[in-house]
Amino acid sequence: MSLHFKLEPTLLIILVLLCSIEISFVRSIDGNIFLILVGLCYLFLNRVHLRKIIWLLIISTPLAFGTWSSFWLFGTGNHFMNASIYTTRLYAYLILGAVITLTESPRALLMNLHVRFNLSNTFVYGILAALNLLEQVKHQIKIIQYAAQLRGIKYHLWSPQLYLKTILSANYWANDLTNAMHSHGFSEGYPRTEVEKQSWPLLQIGLLIIIFLLFNSVLFLS
């Protein structure tokens, strides 16, 4: 049986934010590599498909090359050191972002933040409703493009008219969405049935503290 270990989304976000802030101010190749390795281990433990990780790295390669060449060719001081620091930092940010986006669904993330930090119901369910409309937005863009082609007009992805028409369509959806939420008993500012709060997972908190201390030890030693 393959290994599988998932952290609570709120704790994961806290750790990612703390580590991201630290590497923003601390110039450490070892610290960046430590975060990359820990992040990759977590992705593999959560059985994230290897193809997704490889595509993520391939897509970011031009950015990494641009960062490296900029500091190598036009930087000041130790060119190799600066290029290595900022390139590994880019990959560290990339992997930390993937740790959240590839292992947690938006619904699970928002609902967990709602339970732990008492986020507004209006905010949480509004974001979820907007995310659920993404597929309809893509479909509407295709319809607008096809309708324009019938009139001999071609809308490209960078055409402002395309997005103006999409925004106008979304405005109609907003009214329909509001009516739908009210019909399901959602009223802004009124109490709702909530999931019973559970105690914080002490084992996970302890593990994250250990990882954070190890990360800071690497920063200190480097």
Rank of each mutant, 00 (worst) to 15 (best):
N175H: 12
I36N: 14
T166M: 05
I100Y: 09
R47H: 09
A98Y: 01
I58S: 12
H79M: 01
K154Y: 00
M1T: 05
I167H: 01
Y190V: 06
Q204A: 13
I210E: 12
L37M: 14
S217T: 14
Q145K: 13
R107Y: 10
W72K: 12
L15Y: 14
W72V: 10
I23H: 05
I211P: 14
L157T: 00
N32V: 07
L150H: 10
Y93S: 11
K154P: 00
L203T: 14
F71G: 09
N132V: 03
L119Q: 02
E196W: 11
P106G: 06
N118D: 13
L50S: 05
F25N: 06
L119R: 06
L12R: 02
G31E: 02
L63T: 05
K165T: 00
L164S: 06
K142V: 05
A148L: 03
T193E: 03
T61E: 05
N179Y: 08
G39A: 09
L43D: 01
H184G: 08
L157R: 03
G206Q: 08
N32F: 12
I53Q: 09
Y125R: 11
V48F: 10
D30G: 07
R47A: 00
I33R: 01
Q136M: 07
N118V: 12
L102V: 03
I205R: 05
R89A: 12
L131W: 00
A108D: 14
L96I: 10
A108L: 08
A130K: 02
I58V: 15
C19V: 05
G31T: 02
R107V: 10
A129L: 08
E22M: 13
L113M: 14
F215M: 10
S20R: 07
P9Y: 03
M81N: 13
L63E: 00
S169G: 01
Q140C: 04
K6L: 08
I59C: 08
I205E: 06
L150K: 12
L12C: 06
G77P: 15
T193S: 07
A129P: 00
Y172P: 02
H184L: 15
S222F: 15
I144C: 01
A129I: 06
M1I: 03
L50V: 13
L203Q: 08
L202M: 13
N32Y: 09
N46C: 15
G39R: 04
I29S: 12
P191W: 08
I14V: 15
G189H: 03
L203S: 13
L208D: 02
N78M: 06
K154H: 06
G97H: 07
V38H: 03
S84P: 05
F74M: 11
F215A: 06
K142T: 02
L131F: 12
